[in-house]
């Protein structure tokens, strides 16, 4: 015969083990979602910083009519009125005007220490003859290796120079400045 002593203790043991398993499951779940949740919050702030910096660069000096510094930088990618814009030859040079201005805006902090953000900036244009978009390197202070977690910020700019595929047409064009911005 099976001994039926201690049935309540057995039930209590089973109930307690269920509760412990559930608790461990919930606690483990809580710690694993913490990291991605945290990353999204700082992404949001990084995106705002970058967008604000580009917006400031695309504001004409004195706030009046005329070209903005960002428009000048992109227009300068072409040597004359009839040559399409080309990738910047000094993209990795720290004295590149885009680099100086953008780093000044995004890296400024209260106090003497500067922030250390990395970026890669491209200019995207629409090629009419190929009916597709193309990108030209504008400036960068770090190569993308694939391990970063960048955010993308963009700004529309209207330029006076032709883009690749235009030949020597000289109508104004709209291009999109795309910046990948990250911190590591």
């Amino acid at each position: 015969m099976v001994n039926d002593n201690g049935q309540l203790y057995t039930i209590e043991g089973v109930a307690a083990s269920m509760i412990m398993l559930f608790t461990i499951y919930l606690v483990l779940g809580a710690t694993s979602v913490y990291t991605p949740g945290d990353a999204h919050i700082s992404d949001m702030q990084l995106e705002q910083t970058g967008t604000d910096a580009l917006r400031m660069m695309n504001t004409p000096k004195n706030g009046s009519a005329g070209t903005s510094p960002l428009q000048d930088i992109i227009n300068d990618l072409s040597p004359n009125t009839f040559t399409p814009i080309a990738p910047a030859t000094n993209a990795f040079d720290p004295t590149n005007p885009f680099n100086i201005m953008f780093m000044n805006y995004v890296n400024n902090k209260t106090g003497n220490e500067m922030d250390d953000l990395h970026y890669t900036a491209n200019v995207t244009y629409y090629d009419i003859s190929k009916k597709t978009t193309g990108s030209l390197l504008l400036a960068s202070n770090r190569n993308l290796s694939g391990g970063e977690h960048p955010v993308r910020v963009t700004e529309w700019v209207i330029i006076d120079k032709p883009v690749p595929g235009d030949g020597t047409r000289t109508q104004p064009r709209a291009v999109l400045v795309e910046v990948l911005l990250w911190r590591d």
């Binding site: 995207t124 244009y125 629409y126 009419i128 597709t132 978009t133 963009t154 529309w156 209207i158 047409r169 109508q171 104004p172 064009r173 709209a174 291009v175 999109l176 795309e178």
Partner: peptide
């Protein structure tokens, strides 16, 4: 201008 119009429509579609 027509070209700017064309650029805005196409780049928005391709890149955004």
């Amino acid at each position: 201008p027509d070209y700017v119009h064309n650029d805005i429509v196409n780049i928005s579609l391709f890149r955004k």
